[in-house]
Amino acid sequence: MTKLLFILIIVFIAAVYTGCQSAIDKAVRDTKYSAYEMIGIEKRDLFKKEVKNVKSSQQDTQEDFGDALKHLQAVYNVDGGKLEKAYKSLDSSYKDAEKSVANVQNHINKLEVLSGDLFAEWEKEIKEISSRDLRMKSSESLLNTQKKYNTYHDSLKKSEAKMAPVLARLKDQTLFLKHNLNAKVVAGLKTESDKIQTDINVLIKDMNESIAKADDMIKELE
């Protein structure tokens, strides 16, 4: 067997597996949606709930990054004898921020899947409407909702893209401070700390924007 043929076989198997997994995932989601529909909960309701979940998780993340910012500033403004206490507070807030970021990302992933399923169903069911006038109205409503969602989603991804780099820099500071808790070394990190503080403030601002757009999205779904 040639190397090229072997690679092609591996690629084929991976593609088949991916396709099967996607089909399985969709079947699981369809079963879940059917169960919800039996108790009167439609995809639109689930979508609206997930927008609220994303918003709530972002607010938690804002709070955790705000705490991290406060504790980072404290590290550079305390007496040498209090450095360890300040470090522990920073480390705790970093870990909280890490969990919050993962939670936001998880909810964004759920929202993306749910939005795709909702819009696909909506488009499909528009074709089943016999009234031309109602079809046009539903199509217009779908288009407006998709536009609103795309604006919201772009804002979400913008803030999400900044979370990991800020978190990584915060982790660097936390790990370094763990083994270098003396005033002289800490003072030498002030410039880097200032940059992180700026990044955190920008991230919080971006999250504020996407939270505001979440409110717009929720109103659209009322």
Rank of each mutant, 00 (worst) to 15 (best):
K49P: 04
D154T: 10
K213R: 15
I196L: 15
S100M: 03
D67G: 06
G116F: 02
F176S: 02
K157C: 10
V11D: 00
R132V: 07
K158W: 06
N53F: 05
V101M: 02
D199E: 15
K3E: 13
S155A: 15
D45K: 01
K82H: 04
K52G: 07
F47I: 01
L46Y: 08
E112Y: 10
Q146N: 07
Y33V: 06
A187C: 00
A97K: 00
D30F: 08
T174F: 02
T145F: 05
I7S: 12
T18E: 12
F6H: 14
K190L: 09
N106L: 08
L221Y: 09
T61L: 04
K190A: 10
K171L: 05
G80A: 09
K55D: 12
S155D: 08
Y94F: 13
R135E: 06
I196Y: 02
K55W: 05
I13D: 05
I196S: 05
Q173S: 11
K48L: 13
L134M: 14
I7H: 09
K110F: 02
G80F: 07
S57Y: 09
A86R: 04
R132Q: 14
T174W: 01
F65E: 00
D79L: 06
A168I: 00
N144C: 05
Y152V: 05
N208V: 03
E42S: 15
S89H: 08
R44N: 07
S130K: 14
V113F: 14
D206N: 15
K190R: 11
I200N: 02
I39K: 14
G81F: 07
R135F: 01
E220N: 12
N144S: 09
F65H: 01
R44L: 10
A187S: 02
A86T: 07
K195F: 01
K43Q: 13
M163A: 03
S115Q: 13
Q197M: 13
Y17L: 07
E222R: 12
F65N: 00
E112H: 15
F6N: 13
Q105G: 03
S89P: 07
S210D: 10
K26A: 06
Q105M: 04
R44D: 06
S34L: 13
L114E: 03
K49S: 09
K70D: 13
N201F: 02
K157S: 11
R29K: 09
L114G: 04
Y33R: 11
Q105K: 10
A187T: 01
N77Y: 12
I204Q: 00
H153S: 14
F12H: 07
K162A: 07
E98F: 03
G116Q: 03
T198V: 11
D216E: 15
